[in-house]
């Protein structure tokens, strides 16, 4: 099996497992970015061209205009329903990134918008396109992560990704976040996008020497210097940068493991 096929089948397996458990109480978040668009494509593959649950777009009101345009175009082309979640209350009273701290803005506009929607629609499982290599804290994420009714991630007390093992822990006040593409790296995503010829917001491609590595609210995103104006060029660029970086990190990890092993012999 090809490397990308292996990544794909792992994702599809997680997606199907989630849907089998939660059926109509499943939903997915789509930010319109490359990761969640990849997830969207995988969901279609998992269910033979259909997307059997609602696709939620959290609209902070501060997204790039290209993103709104792309959102509506793809929904029409692939034929799925988008539920747009907006924290109208906060937007109305002027909450935005230029008001207050950036984190407050993200919390208010994203988390609370999602919370309201989940309460209203009664979702029990939400599929998200996050990857383990994204942020430090995400390294601790699992394919299935519960959150408590306070909407807090409980990183220490997470169960593993084995459904049957914790069926009994599920209660109505909790919902599960499902991360089907957790094992993809940024480079994997680009290789997959190239193979599947996925449509994409063209903010990712270089214009006048700059491109976005991730997209979201306009004020929270800043472009990076990069001449990569095509997907092939992005892949080449990432291979040179990320892979050499990762090789270094992998070495450190191996040394840590070697030490741990040696130390298990005695009191070293």
């Amino acid at each position: 099996m090809d490397y990308l096929d292996a990544l794909e089948s792992k994702s599809i397996c997680v997606i199907r497992e989630a849907y089998q458990k939660f059926k109509g109480r499943t939903g997915m978040l789509w930010s319109v970015g490359k990761d969640s668009t990849t997830l969207l494509c995988l969901v279609r593959k998992a269910f033979f061209g259909k997307i059997p649950f609602p696709v939620i777009h959290i609209d902070t009101g501060y997204k790039f205009p290209e993103m709104y345009e792309f959102r509506d175009r793809l929904a029409k082309e692939w034929g799925f329903e988008v539920i747009v979640a907006r924290n109208e209350e906060q937007l109305a009273c002027g909450m935005g990134p230029d008001k207050g701290a950036k984190l407050d803005c993200c919390t208010e506009l994203k988390t609370n918008a999602l919370k309201q929607l989940i309460d209203r629609e009664g979702f029990q499982a939400i599929l998200l396109g996050i990857r383990r290599d994204e942020h430090g804290i995400r390294a601790k994420e699992r394919y299935f992560s519960p959150r408590d009714s306070q909407f807090q991630w409980d990183y220490e007390n997470q169960p593993a990704e084995l459904w049957d093992q914790y069926n009994s822990f599920l209660n109505d006040s909790e919902h599960y976040r499902v991360h089907p593409i957790l094992h993809f790296t940024e480079l994997d995503i680009w290789r997959y996008i190239r193979r599947e010829q996925l449509p994409l917001v063209d903010l990712y491609l270089s214009r006048q020497g700059h491109r976005y590595r991730s997209i979201g609210c306009v004020p929270c995103c800043s472009p990076v210097h990069s001449p990569a104006a095509s997907i092939d060029e992005i892949i080449k660029e990432l291979q040179l940068t990320t892979e050499s970086e990762r090789a270094g990190r992998a070495q450190d990890k191996e040394n840590l493991y070697t030490m741990q092993k040696l130390r298990s012999l005695g009191y070293m």
Partner: peptide
């Protein structure tokens, strides 16, 4: 208490990590 049991390290695509089981 909800916690977990750390099991084998798995050499996955994204490096070495421990598989776990929930312990309640």
């Amino acid at each position: 208490i909800q916690t977990d049991i750390a099991g084998p390290f798995t050499a996955s695509l994204i490096g070495r990590k421990a598989a776990t089981l929930p312990l309640f």
